[in-house]
Design a protein around this nucleic acid. Sequence first.
RNA 1: GGAGACGUGGCCGAGUGGCUUAAGGCGGCGGCUUGCUAAGCCGUUGUACGUUUUGGCGUACCGUAGGUUCGAAUCCUACCGUCUCCGCCA
Length: 425
Amino acid sequence: MLDIQRIRQDTDQVQQGIKNKNVTLDLDPVLEADKQRREIIAEVESLKHERNQVSQSVAEKKRNGEDASELIERTRTIGGTIKELDEKLRGVDEELRTLMLQIPNIPHASVPVGTDPSENPVVKTWGQRVEPDFQLMTHLELGEALGLFDFAKGTKIAGPGFPLYTDRGAKLERALINFMLDFHTEKHGYTEVLPPVLANTRSMTTTGQLPKFEDDMYKIPQDDVYLIPTAEVPVTNIHQEEILSAEDLPIQYCAYSSCFRREAGSYGKDTRGFLRLHQFNKVELVKFTHPDDSYSALEALRQDAEDILQALGLEYRVIELVTGDLSFAAAKCYDLELWAPGEARWLEVSSCSNFEDFQARRGAIRFKSKDGGKAQLVHTLNGSGVATPRLLVALLESYQQADGSILLPDVLAPYMGATGIHLAP
RNA sequence: GGAGACGUGGCCGAGUGGCUUAAGGCGGCGGCUUGCUAAGCCGUUGUACGUUUUGGCGUACCGUAGGUUCGAAUCCUACCGUCUCCGCCA
């Protein structure tokens, strides 16, 4: 959510930001509701002030054994008006809130203006292209030969997009998750948490999944909860409705979770293998920072995610999203893309975003310094560090050998208890 | 799933319709005292919104939402949460 005062004062600037984000939305109804709201508040509060004073007089008279019926009659009338205005105010409040929740975050001044993802500038590339002298296989061919996963069985159990990892494939998945968690906690100073994979409406609203993207999620109507599309949701809501100490900032968590996405509207796109799934595993990084520090924290967050890819020795590039490609809640975002030699294409494995105070305002996440001052909204950031399916694709395809076996990077050996995945004898 | 108890400020805890703009204590902050520390003494204390001449002023907030009443922390209803016991269960 944006600051209503900012919308009131810098209307043109906000309107331009919305436009740059490729969103069609008129701020006039918002300003109108805001004006109405303040008018009603002024009126109803002065009536309440009067009522309080008269009630005090009633109490005084009764204590002295005097007749107060005249005063009582007066407050009765005021009370009726207050009730009407309170009801009207509730309606306008609700209307304003509904409108406010629809407004996207606006891009940071440093974000290049653009409408199409093809305009996203590449800000960095790292690593060496895998170009062996034998015919490259795709992850699907490799996985089948090595018995790492079984999509048919996953489909039988749950449906398409719910993979079954098998044998050394299951172990490799677990190894990757453990490697990444250990890396971020030991080398980057994140605190590990293991969150619920269900979240309620309130939490989904904080991070921006609701109210606009309800159809993208799996809902459990019986209990009014949703399966999380990312650990960002539960982890950001750890501090929902809290006032943190400025001295404790930045707070940084890393979390493994399964993620669930309906991917409505994307049928037919990337349906093969691990490229697009309904359920997948991800290690997520989440930061709560002082507003002054959030942009340096974004660079550091991105580096933390990059470090994983570098430790695994995989070729990747970093792109910066143009304004029109930014997600609803983001003010600035980098994507990390791995090169998958078998697929011969770039695969997004991480999005690192700064949400500034957009989520913090929705979730009432604030901080206060010890030496006085008002509570202020924190800035929240998050990034994948990283998601496993496409990581697995790039890893298998990059480290494949001529005979179809996989020679794994050294850092995974302790987690796999082996240096590679070889064909069954 | 059944039965019961309970939700008051950062924490503990009083408060059964009006002298409660929530007592008292702990903690925090500021000051005094002090060779230092401890102790003591004095003062102070949250959030949001509206308004403002930026000094303030006003309104709301005792789990949440409604209701009764001239007036609600207090009475009524529903819901949520916590705890205890029973049942079920990894």
